[in-house]
Design a protein around this nucleic acid. Structure first.
Lengths: 138, 138
DNA sequence: GTTCCTGCAAAAGCTTTGCAGAAGA
DNA sequence: TCTTCTGCAAAGCTTTTGCAGGAAC
């Protein structure tokens, strides 16, 4: 899917966040590589293209994009923060054997509980863990 | 709910984990205070009772209890690891205003997705965020 | 007596902060 | 020109590790 830069720039401007070259690269990386990367993975890849890139800037960029609501933090595991470009209605499955994270489609708005009738829900994260088909076969 | 110590000890023995006094205290704390505490909260409370308790031991105890499957790690937020005693079929809601974490009842086994037909699911975490009724009223 | 646990201190990681110079509007 | 961004180094946190003494079985 191609990024709509005009709309993104507009959304960022509301928060006084500039879509600098580095930030755009981070956003493009997340859009083109749906691998739910860690900061390190993003840094290592982009550093090849942009030798002056620092890890601080990756952190800064990610935080800015999260603030703007364009990127989501995944906390599926407590020792690794991962990032995902924002898209609708999917859960995340982490394979406990190979570590890969899969998206799965799910109708999040159908998840209801009478206990939450009086709560305002802004965000729904669904994290499953187990073994993926590739690892089951082996 | 009262802890069944015999069964717990048996389950721990399988993994060569002793139910030491400190570990029992940690487990009791989680059982009696369903507040999904951080390591620090557990340490501060238990330290009052057990002045020689170290934070290393709290970490050690929690890791041992997680290994034994008696305690669950909550990764609802990326900058704070929280712990929960294992119980069935509930999701967690974190209020973005007051920070309190609520349990809500939900039938986890009903969460299905055709994308996961060939996956072995061991664990389902449901994390919602938003505003709780107390904070909505204010 | 052997194994596991505890607690201190140190180490290891990850993320944020301060700041000076650079880039963007 | 004013604001924001970048990158380095340092600081701040949380969690883990090494190890010697102690406790449990």
């Amino acid at each position: 899917m191609k990024l709509n830069l005009e709309e993104i720039t507009k959304e960022l401007k509301n928060k006084n966040i500039r879509l600098s070259h580095h930030r755009l690269k981070v956003l493009e990386f997340l859009n083109d590589n749906r691998i739910h990367p860690t900061v390190d993975q993003i840094y290592i890849q982009l550093h090849k293209e942009l030798p002056t890139l620092s890890k601080t800037t990756v952190y800064n960029s990610l935080n800015a994009l999260v603030d703007a609501g364009l990127v989501k933090v995944l906390t599926i595991e407590d020792n690794e923060t991962r990032y995902d470009i924002v898209t609708d209605n999917h859960g995340h499955f982490k394979c406990e054997s190979c570590g890969k994270i899969y998206d799965f489609e799910i109708n999040l708005s159908s998840f209801q509980s009478k206990d939450l009738d009086d709560f305002k829900i802004n965000n729904r994260d669904i994290y499953f863990k187990g073994i993926c088909p590739d690892c089951i076969q082996q």
